[in-house]
Computed example of a mutant assay.
Amino acid sequence: MENFTNNQINFDDLPKWEEVVFTPLHKDYLNVVYIGNAIFSVILTLGFFALLLFNDDSRDYILPLAAAKILVIGLLFWLTTIAFKKKGYAVRERDVIFRKGILATTTTIIPFNRIQHVALHEGVFSRMYDLSELQIYTAGGSSSDLHISGLPKQQAESIKTYLLGLIENEEVETPDEEVQLPETSLESDDSKATDESNL
């Protein structure tokens, strides 16, 4: 029987992801987000004028409504700017890290061995600035997927090629590592497992 050990791990010896130098998103991606905000602002303004046109009672509150609209638009652009500055990513030897958040910071770490598929997405406005979104799909389902927007297209393609290469190498090596056990061995293991479960 092999010696079983379960020694305590010193937390000071563990690698610290906080020491990772995060790469910020490309500065042109902020313009892409601003364009989206501008489109939303135009729609909000049209809705504001439609309210005044079809609702006579709302005209009595035109100044408060206009002030609220301006406040919402200003707050949207301000929060967008802060959120952009907080975002960053890093590719290490064994995982991909993405950080985001305004009041609370969320850091997502995706190990390479969890990645199942990698894709690139280019929006209409992102294409204007030669930017792409890196989409990483994992074995954990949609809740574990990671999307990193605002990457230069060439850099996003390089990361995609690198990650896909790791996935393909793992798939090639998997069949060689599988060992076909004799039928008698399987039966022996099953009986042993049954005996142990009865103990």
Rank of each mutant, 00 (worst) to 15 (best):
residue 7 N to R: 11
residue 10 N to Y: 02
residue 11 F to H: 14
residue 13 D to Q: 07
residue 14 L to C: 07
residue 14 L to S: 09
residue 15 P to I: 04
residue 16 K to W: 00
residue 17 W to Q: 15
residue 17 W to M: 14
residue 21 V to E: 06
residue 21 V to F: 06
residue 22 F to M: 08
residue 23 T to V: 12
residue 24 P to I: 07
residue 25 L to G: 04
residue 26 H to Y: 02
residue 26 H to V: 03
residue 27 K to G: 13
residue 28 D to F: 11
residue 28 D to L: 07
residue 28 D to G: 05
residue 30 L to P: 04
residue 33 V to N: 05
residue 35 I to H: 09
residue 36 G to A: 02
residue 36 G to N: 02
residue 37 N to W: 01
residue 37 N to T: 08
residue 38 A to G: 08
residue 39 I to C: 06
residue 39 I to G: 06
residue 42 V to A: 11
residue 43 I to N: 11
residue 43 I to V: 12
residue 46 L to I: 10
residue 46 L to A: 14
residue 46 L to N: 11
residue 47 G to F: 01
residue 48 F to P: 12
residue 48 F to R: 10
residue 49 F to S: 13
residue 50 A to Q: 10
residue 50 A to I: 02
residue 52 L to I: 08
residue 54 F to P: 06
residue 54 F to R: 09
residue 55 N to S: 15
residue 56 D to S: 14
residue 56 D to M: 10
residue 57 D to G: 15
residue 57 D to C: 07
residue 58 S to T: 06
residue 60 D to G: 15
residue 60 D to N: 14
residue 61 Y to D: 07
residue 63 L to W: 14
residue 63 L to Y: 15
residue 64 P to H: 02
residue 64 P to F: 01
residue 64 P to W: 01
residue 66 A to F: 06
residue 66 A to E: 06
residue 67 A to H: 08
residue 68 A to V: 03
residue 69 K to D: 14
residue 69 K to T: 14
residue 70 I to E: 13
residue 70 I to L: 15
residue 70 I to P: 12
residue 71 L to E: 11
residue 74 G to R: 06
residue 76 L to I: 14
residue 76 L to P: 05
residue 77 F to Y: 05
residue 77 F to N: 10
residue 78 W to H: 11
residue 78 W to F: 12
residue 79 L to H: 13
residue 80 T to I: 10
residue 81 T to N: 15
residue 81 T to S: 15
residue 81 T to K: 13
residue 82 I to D: 03
residue 84 F to P: 05
residue 86 K to Y: 10
residue 87 K to Y: 04
residue 88 G to L: 05
residue 88 G to R: 02
residue 90 A to D: 01
residue 90 A to T: 05
residue 91 V to G: 02
residue 91 V to R: 07
residue 92 R to A: 04
residue 92 R to N: 07
residue 93 E to R: 12
residue 96 V to S: 01
residue 96 V to E: 00
residue 96 V to I: 08
residue 98 F to Q: 03
residue 99 R to E: 03
residue 100 K to M: 13
residue 101 G to P: 01
residue 102 I to C: 05
residue 102 I to L: 08
residue 104 A to V: 14
residue 106 T to K: 10
residue 107 T to M: 08
residue 108 T to N: 10
residue 110 I to C: 04
residue 113 N to P: 10
residue 114 R to Q: 03
residue 114 R to W: 00
residue 115 I to V: 11
residue 118 V to F: 01
residue 119 A to K: 09
residue 119 A to C: 09
residue 120 L to N: 03
residue 121 H to M: 13
residue 121 H to Y: 12
residue 122 E to Y: 09
residue 123 G to F: 01
residue 123 G to W: 00
residue 127 R to E: 04
residue 128 M to C: 13
residue 128 M to A: 14
residue 129 Y to H: 09
residue 129 Y to T: 04
residue 129 Y to S: 06
residue 130 D to Y: 12
residue 131 L to D: 00
residue 132 S to V: 03
residue 132 S to Y: 02
